[in-house]
Amino acid sequence: MKAFITLLYRQIKRFMRAKSRVIGAFVNPLLWLVFFGLGWSKVFNFPMAKQIFGGSDYLSFLAPGIVSMAIFSSSFISGISVLWDKEFGFLKEILVAPCSRKEAIMGRIVGDSLTSVLQGAIILLMTFTIAHSLKISGIPYVILLGFILAGSFVSVGVILALKMTSMEGFQMIMSFLMLPLLFLSGAFYPIDTMPAWMQALSRINPLTYAVDGSRYFLLGTSKFAITTDIGILLLLTFLFAGVAVYMFERTTID
C-alpha cells in the first residue's frame, strides 16, 4: 500500500501547488457554460425547444455536459502528464525503486482522478447558479460517476503517454482526440439529432455515457438506462486501468 499512498500524496501535492493549472481548470468550463450556454439559450427560447433537449431548458441540458467535460479534460491531461515525468526524469526514480509498480501507477491514477473530480464538483456547484432545473439530490451521484469517468481517462492518458516517444505528439492528441470526443459526447447537443454516422461514433465514446448518466441524476431524463451508463463506464475504467498497469509494469528505458 505504501507506493499507492505515496504516489497519491504526490499527485495531490503537485495539484495544490500548480495554481495556474487549478485556475485554468475552472475558467475553461465556466467560459463554455456562460458564453456558449447563455448565448445559445436565447436561440433555443422557442416553445418547441424543450422537446429537443429532453424536456429541460438549454442551460440545464448543457450543465451536466460541462461538468463531465471539466472532469474529462482535467483527467485526460493529468494522465498524459506522465510524459512530463519522462521528460523531467521523475519516472526513473519510480522505475528504479524497489516498490510495486502496480501500486505506484494505481496511486497516480487514483490521485489524479480525485483532483479531477474535485474540480468537476466545484464546477457542478457553480452550474446551479445559472441552470435552474437541476436536482440538488443528484450531486453525490454525479460526483461518484465523475470519479469513474476520471479513472478511465487518467488511464487512457497514462497509456498514451507511455506509448509516446516525444512531446510533439501531445498537441496532436489534444486536437485530434479531445475535441472530437467532446463533440461526440452529446454534451452540447442531443445525440438523437446527430447524423447516423456521428451517432454510431458517439456510442463508442466513453464520455457519452458519463454525460448521459449525469443528466439522469441531475435532470431525471437520459437516453440510455442508467445501469447501462454506469456499467459501460465501470467496464471501460477497469479495462483502461488494467492496460495502464500492464504497460507500466513493462516500462524500461532504452
Binding site: 507506493a3 505515496t6 504526490r10 501535492k13 501547488r17 523531467f88 521523475f90 526513473k92 524497489p98 516498490c99
Partner: peptide
Amino acid sequence: GIVFQDSSLDRELTAYENMYIHGKIYN
C-alpha cells in the same frame, strides 16, 4: 542508490517532499 546523469527529482515539489516520497517508497 542512484544519481542519474539527468535529474530525476520532482521539480514541482520541495526538497523535503522529494526526500519524503523517496523514503516512503524505499520503506
